[in-house]
């Protein structure tokens, strides 16, 4: 409950933050603090300094521009959950954000901090991977845009390098025949995801599935796409039977060695029941199509 000592610098702009990071290489960025401060309180992290980017207002926005929904890194989970734009065009993201922790956590935790921290039990990585998000990074290693599969490198590790700042996340917009959803098996104590399943579906005029994206989180070090499930769905009419049979292939997406387990839910169990949450996500996503 009593953190070790560190210095503190408040950045007024992204450039200033980048300069502070360059000046203090051992410093860590502080956004909403809802992953970092818990670590500090338990003395599980001991950075020499924090660079507070929490007041860079330019990083707090949700905008649609030229085929992309651009979400500033400092956008809070509450803002994601209540955004009309997201609710209609990237429903799974709004839905997942609304399931994070509790209201007070959602008021301060940010999307940027969530994905930068890349906790395997987080909700947003799987959803963002499912929605084909691009992560815009600036700073130490130059400006770049990284796709989800490259961004999430593994357990608590991302493409954000030393001195880098994640500024925004872009989600390609989709037409209205697309529905997406997130289903979560929440840990009863931490409320983080034991299993998280995100699904996005596109159907044609006849109601036949033309494109499916299904991603799993919570039970794996970094989000995993359930390609077999996706393939099985394309061309179907997304009825209950089609969804059930495709969901049954979830286990194929999961390399048994990669699945995480803990004292609450073993890897074997998670792998066996993950399909139930895939099925739930698919059913809601399908219902939202059209």
């Amino acid at each position: 409950m009593f953190a070790p000592q560190f210095d503190y610098y408040r950045a007024g702009s992204v450039a200033e933050a980048a300069a502070l990071l360059a000046e203090h290489p051992e410093a860590k960025l502080l956004a909403g603090g809802h992953s970092l401060i818990p670590l500090l309180k338990l003395r599980l992290a001991a950075p020499s300094a924090l660079v507070d980017i929490g007041r860079i207002d330019s990083l707090r926005s949700i905008r649609e521009e030229s085929g992309t929904i651009e979400i500033g890194a400092l956008t809070t989970h509450s803002e994601l959950a209540s955004s009309e734009l997201l609710r209609s065009r990237a429903t799974a993201l709004a839905e997942a954000a609304g399931m994070i922790g509790d209201p007070a956590v959602r008021n301060r935790g940010t999307i940027g901090g969530n994905v930068a921290h890349a906790d395997p039990a987080s909700d947003l990585p799987a959803v963002l991977a499912c929605l084909g998000a691009e992560f815009r990074v600036t700073g130490g290693n130059g400006d770049r845009s990284v796709g989800a599969s490259d961004f999430f490198e593994g357990l608590m590790s991302t493409a954000i390098g030393e001195g880098d700042i994640l500024t925004s996340i872009g989600i390609p917009t989709v037409d209205s025949a697309c529905g997406s959803a997130y289903a979560k098996f929440a840990h009863p104590a931490s409320r983080y995801a034991v299993i998280g399943a995100a699904a996005a579906l596109v159907v044609d005029e006849d109601g036949s599935c033309t494109c499916a994206s299904v991603t799993l989180g919570g039970l794996v070090p970094a989000p995993v796409r359930a390609t077999a499930v996706e393939e099985a769905l394309v061309g179907t009419r997304l009825d209950a039977a089609a969804i059930a049979s495709a969901s049954g292939l979830t286990g194929d997406a999961l390399d048994a060695d990669d699945v995480l387990g803990d004292v609450y839910a073993s890897a074997e169990y998670r792998r066996s029941v993950a399909q139930v949450w895939v099925q739930r996500a698919l059913s809601s996503a399908a219902a939202r199509c059209g």
Binding site: L42, H187, P188, A189, S190, V263
Partner: peptide, 11 residues
């Protein structure tokens, strides 16, 4: 103690 914090012990 594997359930050593409120993150692990479900009340």
């Amino acid at each position: 103690l594997l359930t050593g914090t409120m993150l692990d012990y479900a009340i």
